[in-house]
Amino acid sequence: MYKDNLYIYHYRAHRSFAIAFLISFILMAVFATPAIAVDDAYLKALEVEAEKSAQVGNSTKSINGSAQSKGGIQISQKEMMQFETELRSARPATYRFYKKLDQQDKTAVFAVYQEEHKMTRASKTVFDLYFEKNK
């Protein structure tokens, strides 16, 4: 009789434990999954927003590209002067470095600018050429 009671007691204890474990598992699944889903949704929203946000070209300074002198390229003095005026206005600090370059390097900077009409690339070229000669 005592053994039977003990058996029933153990059986009930094990059953209660199994039920508690099952309930915990279900609760974890219910509450944990939305947290991950929310996180995924946030990352997805960030990606979508990043795609929608265009670069702000005028305030972007590129550090891409390398300094290359374009041999044989047609340089229009008028266009080059326009470029210098623009550089002076948009990137005054860079312009000061540009002024220290010799004519050949200045032409190289303008040639780089002419490729894509990106002030950012021209600015990078100015620094590359300046530091190449002032190491």
């Binding site: 305030s59 948009a90 600090a93 990078k124 620094f127 590359d128 530091f131």
Partner: peptide, 10 residues
């Protein structure tokens, strides 16, 4: 690369 941080002058 050295980058000069400055403001747009326009």
């Amino acid at each position: 690369e050295v980058v000069a941080i400055q403001r747009i002058q326009d």
